[in-house]
Computed example of a mutant assay.
Amino acid sequence: MTNVTFSLVIIINIFCLCYCAQLPSNFGRCHTKDKEFDECIRKNIEVAIHSLKEGSTQLGLHPFEPLSIPQLIIGQGTGAVNVEQRFSDAKLYGLTGSLVQAGSVDFEKEVILAKSVTPNLQLIGTYDMNGKILLLPLVGTGPFNVTLVNTKINHTITGQAYEKKGKKYWKFVNYTVTLRPERVYFRFDNLYNGSNPQLGENVNQVLNDNWDEVFTDVRPGYEASFGQIFQDLANRVFSRVALKDIFYFD
């Protein structure tokens, strides 16, 4: 089993405007007894993702495009990547452009399942690394861009019911994702702190020529980190909106 450690600190400047909130009018409600329930779930998840691009004053949420991630640390892999990737002042672009292909809810197990495709997911910020990738030294600090193209994402979200002021809510205690990009592009500027620009360009070329091997080695770290980010966002919505305002149960 791949042993990837990661540390993630998310400070997204989002504040609750009130203790409870109603979903915006463009967020639909799904009837649990409707034969098209799964399609309703799929559609509503997609609408929610797209709508939150500009945030929601009703939910007290700031815009999600881009999403700020002050610090992100992806631990080294066990093969090609022998370096800890330390990212700071990062922004995640493209999340709200995701297309949801399927969705379902198991109320007994309190689990939501979804499948999505994100055409272009970009993580941009500042890196700080000192190690090796593909036996090449990777040292430096500077701007970075990791772009995932046409990424298929499977979401498994486990909830836990609780009551607040007589209403039932869900708190998500686990959010697992799998990331399967069609292509990944890497760009690390100022490698070797600018002392050898040509070598820096060559290393970037090697990373992109071998993107599958490089990304596969550290994918568990990215999956764990993205899962934590998504869990945080989901909880910010579900902690404000009661289940009866999301689903029809009668």
Rank of each mutant, 00 (worst) to 15 (best):
Pro119Leu: 07
Ala114Gly: 03
Tyr127Ser: 01
Val111Ala: 05
Tyr127Lys: 00
Leu136Gly: 04
Ala114Met: 03
Leu113Asn: 15
Thr118Ile: 15
Pro119Thr: 03
Ala114Lys: 02
Leu136His: 04
Lys109His: 13
Gly103Thr: 07
Leu113Ile: 04
Leu123Thr: 06
Lys109Met: 08
Ala114His: 04
Glu110Arg: 14
Glu110Ile: 13
Leu138Ser: 04
Gly131Asp: 02
Val105Leu: 11
Lys109Ala: 13
Ile112Arg: 11
Asp128Met: 07
Asn120Ala: 09
Gly125Pro: 08
Val139Gly: 00
Met129Thr: 11
Ile124Asn: 08
Asp106His: 13
Gly125Ser: 04
Thr118Lys: 03
Gln122Tyr: 10
Leu138Gln: 08
Met129Phe: 12
Lys109Thr: 06
Leu136Ile: 04
Pro119Lys: 10
Gly125Asp: 03
Thr126Gln: 13
Gln122Glu: 15
Leu121His: 06
Asp128Ala: 10
Leu113Phe: 12
Pro137Tyr: 05
Phe107Lys: 06
Asp128His: 11
Ile133Gln: 11
Val111Leu: 13
Leu138Glu: 05
Lys132Glu: 11
Met129Val: 14
Lys132Pro: 00
Thr126Asp: 11
Leu136Met: 09
Ala114Asp: 00
Thr126Ser: 11
Ser116Cys: 01
Leu138Cys: 12
Leu138Arg: 02
Phe107Cys: 03
Glu110Cys: 12
Ala102Tyr: 08
Ile112Thr: 04
Glu110Ser: 14
Thr118Phe: 09
Ser116Val: 00
Asp106Leu: 10
Ala102Val: 00
Ser116Pro: 00
Lys109Glu: 09
Leu121Trp: 09
Ser104Cys: 12
Ser104Gly: 15
Leu123Arg: 02
Val105Trp: 11
Leu113Val: 06
Leu123Asn: 08
Leu138Ile: 14
Pro137Ser: 02
Ala102Leu: 07
Asp128Ser: 13
Gly125Glu: 09
Leu113Arg: 14
Ile133Phe: 14
Ala102His: 15
Gly131Lys: 00
Val139Tyr: 02
Ser104Arg: 12
Pro137Cys: 01
Thr118Ser: 08
Gly103Cys: 12
Glu110Lys: 15
Gly103Trp: 14
Ala114Asn: 01
